[in-house]
């Protein structure tokens, strides 16, 4: 039987209350949202916490998906199922529904949240790659107010983020570009599994030329939320199969996968390249007739 070590349970009734509790309890406290990453780690005694602060009551404050003219704002407590089922979000950023369809399974998606997924900072977690490709900005709130941290600097390594011990992630903001589109591809061994490799791509095309492109990857290295050098290589170029091949090579070079039961490092590297090629191709196709 797997049971977490003893801890004190607290329930936050507001964002300020949660931050106040974190401030008072310090580094021995952790927030829990859906709990589908944290509870398994607690059962395996991989965490060291004395207080668990349940923030599920904050869904009313942090459960929003707002598609505005030039930005999408997603509250940290938005659950995977809500991301999957938001038609408005799917129109603005198709990459979310494509990813959510293959994240865990429908019952787990009823609990897991975008905030929990990003803060868990699991290198195999798909939404981090999505948010990296979309150049998302994380809103982190503490006792002294809010600060904004781009996805590029949000993960500090596996299971580590820019969120301080007395702070919490409250919102994810994603810029919208005219002529922009996005796509997601994942290879998994069976339904609901973690990725062998997954890739998200976002592009902007104007007058037949790529004006912006980003790729995020999951499960192919400790920090692959964005692929460095790829944006520079694609900007100003005309989309073509040769260009996608070039991007695939950059992505394959940027990853650092480990051989495990899901596949060999070579196979995962191959997938990182191939999925980069496919997502870029589909993202560019998605921009046609848009700008």
């Amino acid at each position: 039987m797997q049971v977490p070590a003893p801890f004190e349970y607290e329930r936050a009734t507001s964002v300020d209350h949660a931050i106040g509790l974190l401030g008072r309890l310090g580094g021995s406290a952790r927030l829990v949202a859906g709990g589908h990453s944290l509870l398994p780690m607690m059962k395996l005694r991989l965490t060291d916490l004395e207080y668990l602060i349940d923030i599920n009551d904050l869904h009313a404050d942090l459960g929003h998906v707002r598609v505005e003219r030039d930005e999408v704002r997603i509250g940290a407590m938005v659950r995977h199922r809500e991301l999957l089922e938001s038609a408005e979000l799917a129109r603005a950023l198709p990459v979310f529904a494509e990813a959510e369809r293959v994240i865990a399974d429908p019952v787990v998606r009823n609990r897991g949240t975008i905030g929990g997924s990003l803060c868990q900072a699991d290198p195999s977690e798909d939404l981090s790659a999505v948010c990296g490709a979309l150049d998302a900005v994380c809103v982190i709130r503490g006792a002294d107010g809010e600060r904004l941290v781009p996805m590029d600097g949000f993960h500090r390594g596996p299971y580590e983020t820019a969120v301080g011990p007395d702070e919490m992630l409250t919102e994810v903001r994603i810029p919208l570009h005219p002529g922009g589109s996005s796509a997601f591809e994942k290879v998994e061994r069976r339904a609901g599994d973690w990725a062998v490799a997954s890739v998200a791509a976002a592009v902007q095309v104007e007058d037949g030329l790529i004006t912006g492109a980003r790729v995020g990857m999951a499960a192919v290295g400790p920090d692959t939320v964005t692929v460095p050098g790829l944006s520079e290589a694609l900007r100003g170029q005309r989309p073509s199969e040769e260009l996608y091949t070039h991007a695939a090579e950059i992505a394959a070079r940027a990853c650092d996968p480990a051989t495990d039961t899901r596949g060999s490092a070579d196979y995962k590297r191959h997938l990182a390249g191939e999925l980069t090629r496919r997502t870029l191709r589909r993202a560019v196709a998605g921009t046609e007739g848009k700008a």
Binding site: R11, G35, P40, D54, P106, V107, V108, N110, R111
Partner: peptide, 13 residues
Amino acid sequence: GEPVKSCTVLAAM
């Protein structure tokens, strides 16, 4: 009203 996996939900929740 929503299905959840009760092995990964605390009773307190």
